[in-house]
Design a protein around this nucleic acid. Sequence first.
DNA 1: CGGGATCCAATCCGATACTG
DNA 2: CAGTATCGGATTGGATCCCG
Lengths: 127, 127
Amino acid sequence: MHPNEHCNCRYADVGCDRMEQVMDQISGKWKMRILFMVGAHGTLRYGELRKLLDGVTHKMLSNQLKELAADGLVQRIDYNEVPPRVEYRLTENGEALMPIFDDIQKYIRRQSCGDCCKQETRHTCCE
Amino acid sequence: MHPNEHCNCRYADVGCDRMEQVMDQISGKWKMRILFMVGAHGTLRYGELRKLLDGVTHKMLSNQLKELAADGLVQRIDYNEVPPRVEYRLTENGEALMPIFDDIQKYIRRQSCGDCCKQETRHTCCE
DNA sequence: CGGGATCCAATCCGATACTG
DNA sequence: CAGTATCGGATTGGATCCCG
C-alpha cells in the first residue's frame, strides 16, 4: 500500500526512493556543512575549505568531498600544478539544493536567536 | 575573522553556530526520514511510524524520537492507556523545517526521474 | 503497545605518518 | 598543497530480552 492512499498526508512523495537517496547524500556529520560552505563561497580551494570547516580532519574532508563529487553535488577542479591546486565548487545539482539552507536560516530567524552566535560579527540570523 | 569579511559569499550566516546546531539536529540516518514522515502524516503512532520507516529498528526509532523531542522538533503525546498508545507529531518548530522537504522534492523533479520510485503508484516527483 | 537495558558487531572518525 | 594509508578509540546500530 502506498502510504498516501489511506491518510491525508501533505506530500505525495512519502516513501519515494529518490527522496531517501537524496537524504542519504546530504546526511552525515559534514555533508551539509561542506555543501553550505562551498555554495556560500562559490569556489574554494581544499585548504580554504578545511580552515572554514571548524574541526574537520583531513581524512573526513577528503572522504566526504569524494562522496559528494561521486553523487554529482560538488565539482572537483584539479589544475595539475606543483604544488597542487584543487578547487571545489557546486555542480548544477548541488546549487539546486541550496534553498535548503535558506530554509534553515528562515527557521533560525523565526526563533529568538539571542546568543546563537559566538562571533563578534552580527549575523543576519541574530537580527 | 568572520568568514564573510573577505569573500563574496552569498550567505551572511556562514559559520553561524546556530546553523551548525540545526544541521546536527537533522543529520544522522533517520532524523530527516522521521521528520518527513511525521510531517507528511500529521500524527502517527509509534508502531505506524515504525512500519512506514523501512528498516528502522526499535532502538533507533525510540532513540531518534527522543532526541528529536528533546530538540523540540517533535511532540510526544502519551495517552496513558493500557495497552500504551503514544502519538507523535511535529512541534511548531518542526513544522517550520518542512520547507526543506519541499525543496528536496523540487530538486528531484528538476532531474530526470525515470525509475526513481519502485512503487506502482506514481509520485509527483516522477511526473 | 511502546518502550528500556544489555551485549556485541560494524562503522565512523580522529590522530598520525607518508607521498608526489 | 592536496591528498592517501593505517591504526585504534568512540560512536552507531542491530538483535534480543525484559517490563508495565
